[in-house]
Simulated scan of single mutants.
Amino acid sequence: MRIVIAEDAVVLRDGLCLLLTSRGHEVAAAVGDGEALAAAVAEHRPDVAVVDVRMPPSHTDEGLRAAIRIRQDHPDLGVLVFSQYIETRYAAQLLAGGARGVGYLLKERVADVKDFLTALDRVAAGETVLDPEVVTQIMGASRRGETLALLTPREREVLALMAQGRSNTAIAEALFLSYGSVEKHVSQIFTKLGLTPSDTDHRRVMAVLHYLQA
């Protein structure tokens, strides 16, 4: 199997190279950023790319976004995301349309080298291999997005201002609404998000968290 590795941590990158070559695989390239990954895939036409999520320059989601781009350019390429982090937005894009030959494993949850190698083989064969925690978080993010879709455009504007820490009075001034109208919008937001009155939870904070997580 011909493999390209995209991992900015040098020690881990070299370790993956040694592991894979010792198992008879060919590591065509081992790079440290998304642009180099795209170039390596175009040059070497690997069977699978093993990609970390966080890479230079911002160390946020460059690897995952690069994985989406190379899949668009090379739809038959297997992609195994191997990371400490779950980035639900781009993970869902990578898996959109029932994508074949895609995997997403969490580094700390791979207890056996054989599990990693088996996942690599399955991705190369066109299967989808996902850590259960990845599935849980993607589904949770999807449900939150669906719930926010129930809000009217005005309610979303109010919730966005709540997320900025604005009071009802400040929201009324910003949106040129009466204070009573803002109160009604906030009440509707709580209802649609399923946030019932509680002695232990602050509904305003919970609504903002819901918005930020979605």
Score class of each variant (00 low, 15 high):
88 T>I: 10
160 A>S: 14
43 E>Y: 04
129 V>R: 04
153 P>R: 01
180 G>K: 12
122 R>W: 12
88 T>Y: 05
136 T>D: 10
49 A>T: 03
123 V>N: 07
183 E>P: 00
35 E>G: 12
45 R>M: 05
85 Y>V: 14
7 E>F: 07
175 L>H: 05
61 D>E: 14
119 A>V: 11
207 A>I: 07
50 V>S: 07
155 E>W: 01
145 G>N: 12
17 C>T: 13
67 A>M: 07
121 D>K: 15
54 R>G: 06
46 P>G: 09
112 D>R: 15
54 R>I: 01
106 L>C: 02
8 D>P: 05
10 V>Q: 12
72 Q>H: 11
23 R>C: 07
64 L>E: 03
46 P>C: 05
135 V>M: 09
27 V>I: 14
53 V>M: 00
193 L>K: 04
128 T>Y: 00
19 L>W: 08
30 A>L: 11
103 G>L: 03
29 A>H: 15
103 G>N: 03
23 R>S: 10
182 V>E: 03
100 R>N: 08
37 L>H: 04
139 M>I: 11
136 T>S: 11
207 A>G: 10
46 P>S: 09
27 V>R: 14
29 A>W: 13
108 E>I: 07
30 A>D: 12
208 V>F: 00
97 G>V: 08
207 A>Q: 08
57 P>V: 05
179 Y>N: 12
165 G>Y: 06
117 L>Q: 07
120 L>I: 11
128 T>W: 05
67 A>I: 08
17 C>D: 10
148 L>W: 08
8 D>V: 02
197 P>N: 04
71 R>A: 11
43 E>F: 06
117 L>V: 14
38 A>T: 09
106 L>S: 03
187 S>Q: 14
39 A>E: 15
153 P>I: 02
141 A>M: 11
54 R>Y: 00
128 T>F: 01
157 E>Y: 01
110 V>E: 02
78 G>N: 05
149 A>D: 14
198 S>F: 07
27 V>F: 14
1 M>L: 01
115 D>F: 09
81 V>K: 02
205 V>N: 08
37 L>D: 03
81 V>A: 00
86 I>D: 00
56 P>K: 06
164 Q>I: 02
143 R>Q: 12
160 A>N: 10
188 Q>I: 01
187 S>N: 09
99 A>K: 02
149 A>V: 02
85 Y>G: 00
52 D>G: 08
60 T>A: 07
160 A>L: 10
11 V>G: 10
